[in-house]
Computed example of a mutant assay.
Amino acid sequence: MSERAAAVRRLDLGYFVRPAVEVGGPEPRVEPAYGYLVRRPEGLLLFDTGIGTVDPDTEAHYRPRRRPLMTALDAAGVGLDEITMVVNCHLHFDHCGGNPALAGRPIVVQRTELAVARAPGHTIPELVDFPDARYEELDGEAEIWPDVWIIPTPGHTAGHQSLALRQSDGTVILAGQARDFATQYGSDELALRAARDGVADPLPPVPEWLPRLVDLDPARVLFAHDGAVWEPATW
């Protein structure tokens, strides 16, 4: 197995149906839910943990089909007890559903996100405050392990965060739901490039966090709800 394959592995954690009213078009859209295993000398990090149990109204709204976290980990040859740390891009139910199964492990989250998640209407409370939940709260960017950074990428939620991992073949960014699709990220990256090249306005606006990600010179950017991978153009 190559270093690249060993260092980051995508986990299929099921899918859900986003209603047309949220898609902004005439048809609903079926979206995957992905987690990512990150293997480092310091341990095994899990980025997002799958779709949690929800109330009947939310269940009917999104019609999720869950792939249990243990099943996904088994397919990757990993046991629950091997997970050293959890990072959630944010605390909506489709990203933190497996957290209670990892009680006692540190869960890295932005302080802003945890505060919002504990307010009514943001997520499922039982997925946030469960027995032996152990949060490591951050206020902004942090290098949590050597060459592994948490980067705030607010927008989808106020406390959304991404993870950047420097490898020998380039930096990999786990962008979570900072953007829903690789094509959206690619459009943002081009708009920022145009602005830096001095192209005159009007240009599309880009997220405030985008320059930080671009300046990391990512070789790959991966997403929570899109199987496509953004990569820079090569010649």
Rank of each mutant, 00 (worst) to 15 (best):
R111Q: 13
A7R: 14
W149C: 04
D226A: 08
A76W: 05
P26S: 13
C89R: 06
P207K: 08
A5V: 05
W149I: 00
E59A: 15
R193G: 09
P26E: 13
L213D: 01
F223D: 03
V172F: 04
G43Y: 09
A7T: 15
P26Y: 00
D55I: 02
G98H: 07
T157E: 07
D129L: 04
W149Y: 09
A200Q: 13
R66A: 05
L102D: 10
L163R: 05
A75N: 06
V30S: 12
G25Q: 08
D197F: 03
R105F: 07
R66M: 01
L174D: 07
D129K: 01
A228I: 00
H92L: 11
D147N: 14
L213Q: 04
P68T: 04
T53K: 09
C89P: 01
V214C: 01
L192H: 14
P100L: 11
R40S: 04
V17T: 15
Y185G: 01
L114C: 05
R134M: 07
M1W: 10
P218S: 10
V17P: 00
G97C: 09
T49I: 02
V199P: 00
L46A: 05
L163A: 07
A175V: 00
G43D: 10
A182K: 11
A194D: 13
T84A: 13
R118E: 13
T171A: 11
G186D: 14
T112I: 14
P120I: 02
A158D: 15
G35T: 03
M1N: 11
R166M: 03
E59L: 15
L213Y: 01
L203S: 03
P218H: 11
P204H: 04
P100M: 12
T49G: 02
A182R: 11
G159R: 10
V86R: 06
G155P: 07
D180K: 12
P152E: 07
L165S: 02
